[in-house]
């Protein structure tokens, strides 16, 4: 096994020329996608080069504070992204999503690097940062799907929840069906991914490791581990987000305060 063939500017330019073919197709068929294609292509180049460029000093620094600082920024950005995909709001939803991702993503990534892989030091950026990235990327999807579902059900299905409250249900008893449905919705993508993985596609991380020269069977074991980590973090993050939403939307007198849910833009 050898390391990857280095990619220089010439090779990147060759790769970029494929986009020109894409653009010609769009022009020929009048798809009107040229502008979007150009912007997306430029964003790909700028964002990824920037990320690679920023990570070099972080990897080289040997500073735990710097590595954990990068992790914190990643968590905050992931929380913003997850809330951005939810069509309803409550006061404090941003803080709640950040806490949920911090607890779920942070604890899972630390468990992986510090205990399961036991790398030395535990904050070793080569392990912590890419694993946290994969965990956050998936957990934020679960959180946004679950939150969207829970808030929609509390808003539109108010009558169903109040039918139980009116008979003496506590807020937890009355919101149980809502929470269960929201969790189910949030966990569907990762469960699907776990079932389909390896049948059709080689997942991204495994692809990367194989290209990087890792033996495929070891790459497969890494991929299995990361999928389990993702599933755990997604469940924990979605569960926490739904719990925070329930705490915000119900008051301590077991009342569903519908006015605390707003639709985006209003």
């Amino acid at each position: 096994m050898t390391g990857p063939v280095p990619i220089g500017p010439g090779q990147l330019a060759l790769g970029a020329s494929l986009l020109i073919a894409h653009g010609l197709l769009s022009l020929g068929l009048q798809l009107g996608l040229e502008r979007k294609l150009l912007i997306a292509g430029v964003r790909t180049v700028v964002q990824l080069l920037l990320m690679g460029w920023l990570l070099v000093p972080v990897f080289a620094s040997g500073s735990a504070a710097l590595v954990l600082g990068v992790c914190t920024v990643m968590i905050v950005l992931a929380a913003r992204e997850s809330v951005g995909r939810v069509s309803r709001r409550y006061r404090g939803i941003q803080v709640a999503a950040t806490v949920a991702l911090f607890v779920a993503g942070g604890s899972t990534a630390l468990l992986a690097s510090g205990v399961i892989l036991a790398v030395d030091p535990w904050w070793s950026p080569q392990y912590l940062i890419p694993m946290l990235g994969m965990i956050l990327g998936n957990a934020l999807t679960g959180i946004s799907l679950g939150l969207d579902r829970a808030l929609a059900e509390l808003d539109e299905g108010r009558g169903r929840v109040e039918a139980l409250l009116a008979l003496g249900a506590t807020r937890w008893e009355a919101s149980r069906p809502v929470a269960a449905e929201a969790l189910r919705t949030g966990l569907v993508p990762i469960l699907n991914a776990m079932s389909a993985v390896g049948l059709v596609t080689i997942p991204g991380m495994m692809t990367g490791q194989i290209l990087g020269g890792t033996e495929p069977s070891l790459a497969a074991r890494y991929q299995i581990l990361i999928l389990f980590l993702i599933a755990f973090a997604t469940a924990l993050g979605t569960g926490l987000s739904v719990l925070f939403a329930l705490l915000a939307v119900f008051d301590d007198q077991h009342r569903l305060r519908g006015e605390r849910i707003s639709t985006r833009g209003s």
């Binding site: 009558g159 109040e162 039918a163 409250l165 009116a166 008979l167 003496g168 249900a169 506590t170 007198q253 077991h254 009342r255």
Partner: peptide, 13 residues
């Protein structure tokens, strides 16, 4: 306690 109250004073929508 609100749940017990509602079991005694029950609203039908």
């Amino acid at each position: 306690g609100m749940p017990s109250w509602r079991a005694e004073v029950t609203w039908v929508s």
